[in-house]
Amino acid sequence: MGPARRTVALVNDEPMIVAEGLHKRYGDTVALDGLDLVVPAGTVLGLLGPNGAGKTTAVSILTTLLTPNAGHAVVAGVDVVRDPDGVRRLIGLSGQYAAVDEHLTGAENLEMIGRLYRLGRRLSRQRGGELLDRFRLADAADRPVKTYSGGMRRRLDLAAALIAEPPVLFLDEPTTGLDPRSRTELWVVIRDLVRRGTTVLLTTQYLEEADQLADDIIVIDHGREIAHGTADELKRMIGGEHLELTVLDLDRLDDARAVVEPHAIGEIHSDAQRGHLSAPVDGGASTLTKVLRDLDDRSVEIVDVGLRRPTLDDVFMALTGHTAEVPT
């Protein structure tokens, strides 16, 4: 029961993170243009947006690395501008790029961060050891970080953010650049943290990640909220899974459409020039199998078929009528 925990108890009924009207400019670039957000204690907020949307800027303000030009923010009851050190005691940050020292070992990195949180040498080592175990880094604990894979660095970086057991955790694109397996592993770790009561704000460019982890999602673009809701609400807005297929012979597209029709739960879009069609479905793989069997029965040859989960681009298409624009 550290001092951090006690502070949490005090503000238990209050939201853990509140931001109102955050503005941030870099010269002529408006990075944040009046962002509001509220994260209740023990929940996960996903900040979803393309490159350049303002995600890192928002995280930087909430973690006291940047001061906003306007607006204010309170983390665990502490104002980020008025009492930055108070906020720093209560948060863990795992930034967009793993910020661990390449030349130190995993254990040394964690000890260093623990001591800078003033846990003392003994407790820093003890917690460091526990975290290395928990994140399956125990075997690599005494190896310099420069021998670690990307996934291992990311886990170590997260361990560093957790060493003081902060009640509020900020994760900026925690899985960008990771292979699918490391990504899934990290999701497990994050879910585990939330189960233990940590409040999390995470940013991501992947709708699927927000869907997997977040209770509540804010979609941002150009520093502004463009949609807000649970993963289900967003998916309802844009339609869920799609079955997509391309026929070999363009003339058979209508036959293919007839096969898909009974499974579609919404409007089917087809493109006669490319011989392509896309239909919202549910039932996943079993639907796909049925469709393939029927196509085969009617000898409709296809060159490509698959189930596609909606992406950030689909969100943007549905909300703004264009795909997420990536600056530069």
């Binding site: 930087s60 973690t63 006291t64 690395l65 050190d85 720093r88 005691r89 948060i91 940050l93 930034g95 910020a99 961060i113 800078l116 949180y117 003033r118 560093a160």
Partner: peptide, 8 residues
């Protein structure tokens, strides 16, 4: 950035 986010 990491150091700056710590209460040091």
């Amino acid at each position: 950035d990491r150091f700056r986010s710590l209460p040091m």
